[in-house]
Amino acid sequence: MDDTSIIKLYWERDENAVRETAAKYGKLCIKLSENILNNKSDAEECVNDSYLTVWNRIPDERPDYFSAFLCRIVKNLSLKRLEHNTAQKRNPEMLVSLDELQECLPSDNLPEKSFDARLLGKSISDFLRKQKEVDRCIFIRRYWYSDSVKAIAEDLGVKEDRISVTLFRMRKKLKIHLEKEGFCL
């Protein structure tokens, strides 16, 4: 079922909306949540909570990109759950992916108020739009979905080191981009 039809079901308060959402995006949501929580049962709970949240938000909302809308909810709920979990339970993959990305950004001694996360996010979006589709998707999968390099490589059917090289190259380019945008020293 296409996203528009699923959203229509939500608007009609048809419970099949949740079933169709789970059928189409369930695996992705579980994976995304697992990437953050490193725990399947926690992830499943978060995803179920996410469906409820979507049910409560549509209506009134009518998202243009339903999968992104859903994934944002899953991610936020998973992050909230993460806060309640012990540090030991955190999935290192997520932390590692953020660590990797940090090298693109200004040094720690800059005052944090220098950064507007929304502007920074927009700048990263602008940068990504200038990249090749495959590179862009690899980047987002790694740094938004926190997918492991191995998982991305397997999914795309290429070697892990090819993904690593692509990410390495993109981080360097992103750093240059952010410097030009005035985010870096």
């Binding site: 992705l28 998202p63 243009d64 990109y65 339903f66 999968s67 992104a68 809308f69 994934c71 944002r72 991610k75 992050l79 932390l95 953020l98 660590d99 990305l101 940090q102 950004l105 200004p106 040094s107 720690d108 800059l110 944090e112 950064f115 996360a117 929304r118 920074l120 996010g121 927009k122 990263i124 979006s125 990504l128 739009r129 589709e133 495959v134 862009r136 998707c137 987002i140 999968r141 740094y143 938004w144 979905y145 999914d155 795309l156």
Partner: peptide, 26 residues
Amino acid sequence: MTSDILAEAMDYIDDDLISQAYSYSR
């Protein structure tokens, strides 16, 4: 730059990009 700011910034990436990454993989 802390991971929190970075994570927050990443959360502001445009929806269509996030959606596209998923479609691309599928």
